[in-house]
């Protein structure tokens, strides 16, 4: 029996996930809406003084991005486990490593990419200096990809559980911390007029190591979750 090439299979998997995502625009809009609402809450809590808000803006934007990613990681594999698609994926002859990577890529395209592209608007809502906006957008684009990979591990491990929401936070939030630290530092550096490049480079390095390791953990997590 001839089997399809891993690359072709992954391409079809990404396309399938994107089609599914685009046919449910609500799922696409939810993380962005969540982001907008939480960002809108901060002026109410901290007071509307533009200076205070601008000071906190890098941290706020990064923490909200992290939470919005956490919110969606839970659902990456859920519907596929419930309808049996996941067990068919596990039985496919193609390596699960690449399939896991394809799932995460599709998740990032539908969440992190949109968030990174929309982030300048949210930055202006908080009065972030325009000079820091490119650093914010780049750090979010790089960082959310790492978050999606780590979140995929949590999603794969908790997909078999009825209420995985709390557990997934406990599992993956500690691994989110380096991304948060270097992501917000990049924006802070750009604000202070120092180069953001080194921080972005570290985010890039985190992305490389996550691409290498996270799909293995996701694949193992999926096998455990399906093996009931």
């Amino acid at each position: 029996m001839t089997s399809a090439s891993a690359a072709g299979f992954c391409f079809r998997l990404v396309r399938r996930q994107l089609v599914l995502g685009l046919r449910r625009p609500v799922d696409l809009g939810n993380p962005l809406l969540f982001f907008a609402m939480v960002v809108a809450l901060f002026p109410l809590g901290l007071g509307p003084a533009p200076d205070t808000l601008a000071d906190f803006a890098p941290g706020i934007l990064w923490i909200v991005a992290l939470l919005s990613n956490l919110l969606t990681s839970d659902a990456v594999f859920r519907s596929d486990l419930e309808d049996g698609s996941l067990e068919q994926l596990l039985l496919a002859p193609q390596p699960l490593y690449f399939s896991a990577l394809a799932y995460v890529l599709a998740h990032w395209l539908l969440t992190g990419l949109l968030l990174g592209l929309a982030s300048p608007v949210f930055a202006l809502m908080l009065g972030l200096a325009p000079a820091a906006i490119p650093a914010l957008a780049f750090s979010l684009l790089l960082g959310t990809a790492v978050l999606s990979l780590i979140g995929g591990i949590g999603g794969a491990l908790t997909v078999g559980l009825k209420r995985g929401g709390m557990l997934i936070s406990l599992l993956i939030l500690p691994f989110y911390m380096p991304v948060l630290i270097f992501g917000s530092s990049a924006v802070q550096a750009a604000l202070n007029g120092t180069p953001a490049g080194p921080y972005l480079a570290i985010l890039g390095a985190l992305l490389c190591i996550s691409i290498a390791l996270a799909p293995m953990a996701i694949a193992a997590g999926l096998r455990i979750s399906v093996d009931t």
């Binding site: 599914l20 419930e82 309808d83 049996g84 698609s85 067990e87 068919q88 039985l91 002859p93």
Partner: peptide, 15 residues
Amino acid sequence: PQLFLGHQSAVKGLL
């Protein structure tokens, strides 16, 4: 090579 078809139909409502 095997083909396994389980209880669940693996059919996506949106497709």
